[in-house]
Computed example of a mutant assay.
Amino acid sequence: MTNIELGFTELLSQYQQSEGLDGFEVGRVILEHKDRYIIKTPTQEFDAELMGNLRFMAESKYDLPAVGDWVAFSEFDEGKALIHEVYPRSSIIERQAVGKVGQIQIIAANIDFGLIVQSVNRDFNLNRLERYLTICHASKVEPVIVLSKIDLIDEDTLLTIKNQINERINDVAVVTVSSQTKGYDELNTFLKKGKTYCLLGSSGVGKSTLINHISGKSVMKTGNISSAVNKGKHVTTHRELIVLDKGILIDNPGMREIGITDASGGLEVTFETILSYAENCKYSDCTHVHEKGCAVLEALDNGEIDEGAYANFRKMEKEKEHFESDTLERKKKDKNLGKLIKSAVKQRKNQKF
């Protein structure tokens, strides 16, 4: 195995040279647990922690390592390492942090493809699918829709699901698989050495089973099917990078909430059909809700825009606006707190003299 097969690129190599990082080892974060990390190189894995200055200088989560990151590190004991710097990222898949107003959670870094897995028997949901597509598009990550557990429904039902996807989603590949190995040959055509694939989906949709089929061996533990709900038990408890013979996979715990941050136009890509009508709106600041002369509303009335897609677009757009507002408010509070601390420190120093 080489660093290139692990995903190291020419751009990262150039950064390594320009920043004088040749004196450090380079590796990829394959596991993150609180403030501890597992780093993988072509020959070894290291239990790592952050250098003090990297930890204390970090202004946000963006400055700290995440699964998929490349880092410069030094070994200080057998199998032990210190992380000195995080290399620039080519992409970041993120969502709103659950229960934390105005904050983000990094799902994974340096991703090339997002494999969005939905089971067709119970989990399939077009609105949720559009949410996953939006976080992929915002991250400039190419999405692939994987419909799992197709052996649990009949052909007509599967065809109906595919038609629903085609009516609302354009230019995204759709692959169907089952636990009985069906469909994995097609999925394997997307996998390439040196490329990184992030699995996205709810609990019990079959992500661990998918990894085992792709790898050709039992890499991940899988849960039994519950007869009560006909659903697999969720067994993944942390993010983990798995190096396969062909490509690199990042598995994730199932996500119940997919809060939109979207600072990079993901909504515009996901709902391109809707927003193409917006170019003909009478007002440039049209909200597409109540204005006369709104081309989007006119297309909606004429049946040219799917009502479900429009409702989901509006909901996610509001969510994005709220997140941006919450983020600005939180930054303002942090800034005021910083000023208060500096003032208190200065006052204490003056009292000493």
Rank of each mutant, 00 (worst) to 15 (best):
A138Q: 10
A228V: 10
I250C: 02
D77C: 00
N121G: 02
G232F: 03
V141W: 03
T9F: 01
T261Q: 03
H33R: 12
L115W: 10
I116Q: 00
L11C: 09
A173V: 10
I305Y: 12
R28L: 10
D301T: 09
F56C: 01
I135Q: 04
S74T: 08
E324F: 14
K162F: 07
I305F: 07
L126Y: 01
R36Y: 12
K246D: 01
L64Y: 03
V86W: 03
T236E: 12
T134C: 12
D123T: 09
N350W: 04
K207G: 11
K100Y: 11
D154F: 06
K149V: 09
E268G: 10
A299Y: 06
M316E: 06
N121M: 14
K231W: 14
Y62P: 01
S343E: 08
D77F: 04
I38V: 08
K231L: 12
L126E: 09
A58I: 05
L129A: 13
G266Q: 06
D156K: 08
Y197F: 14
G52S: 10
L31H: 15
Y283L: 00
F313Y: 11
L191A: 04
E45A: 12
S343L: 13
E329H: 14
N170C: 12
E94N: 09
C136I: 13
G7H: 01
T327D: 00
E291T: 13
G338D: 13
K349A: 05
E59H: 07
N280T: 02
F73K: 02
L191E: 00
M220I: 05
S18L: 09
G232K: 02
V141M: 02
S178H: 05
D69R: 13
K34R: 13
N110D: 04
R314Q: 10
V71Q: 09
K162N: 15
G259D: 11
G201T: 06
K352T: 06
G223C: 02
T287W: 05
V172Q: 13
T222P: 11
E319D: 11
V26E: 00
E240F: 11
K318E: 12
L82V: 06
I211A: 06
G266E: 11
A108N: 08
L210I: 04
T209F: 11
Q118R: 05
K315L: 15
L129E: 10
I107E: 00
G303R: 03
H234A: 15
G338P: 00
M51T: 15
S276D: 13
G338E: 15
L82P: 06
S74W: 03
T209H: 02
H33W: 12
H234K: 05
V101P: 08
K80A: 08
F271D: 04
M220P: 05
E240D: 10
E75F: 02
N224Q: 14
E257G: 04
